[in-house]
Amino acid sequence: MLEIIEQNQGCNEIHIAPEYRENGVGRVVIRGVGNKVRIDAPKYCANLFLEVTGGASVDIEASCVFHGQNIHLLAPGHLRIGVGCGFNGHSIIQMHEPSSINIGAHSLFGGDTMVSSSHVHKIVDVKTGKRLNPPGDIVIGRHVWVSAGASVWCGANIGADSIVGKGTYVSKHFPANSLIAGNPARVIREGVTWEF
Rank of each mutant, 00 (worst) to 15 (best):
M1L: 07
E3S: 05
I4V: 15
N8T: 07
G10L: 14
G10V: 10
E13A: 13
I14L: 14
A17G: 04
A17V: 00
P18M: 01
R21W: 04
E22Y: 01
I30W: 03
R31M: 13
N35F: 12
V37K: 05
A41F: 08
A41T: 09
P42W: 01
P42T: 04
Y44D: 07
Y44G: 12
C45K: 00
A46C: 14
N47D: 14
F49H: 14
T53G: 01
G55D: 06
S57D: 09
I60C: 09
S63T: 10
C64G: 06
C64N: 14
H67R: 12
N70V: 08
H72S: 14
L73P: 07
A75D: 02
P76R: 08
G77L: 09
L79R: 04
R80N: 03
I81W: 05
G82S: 06
G89N: 13
P98Q: 08
S100M: 05
I101C: 06
N102V: 15
S107Y: 02
S118I: 01
H119F: 09
V120P: 01
H121Y: 11
H121F: 10
I123V: 15
V124E: 07
V124A: 02
V124I: 15
V126K: 13
T128N: 03
K130V: 14
I138F: 06
V139P: 01
G141A: 07
R142I: 04
V146N: 00
V146L: 02
S147A: 15
G149P: 05
G149I: 08
A150N: 03
A150G: 05
S151V: 02
G155Q: 03
D161Y: 15
I163Y: 02
K166S: 05
T168H: 02
V170R: 00
F174G: 01
P175R: 07
S178K: 04
P184L: 10
A185H: 04
R186D: 05
R189T: 03
R189I: 06
E190G: 05
E195T: 10
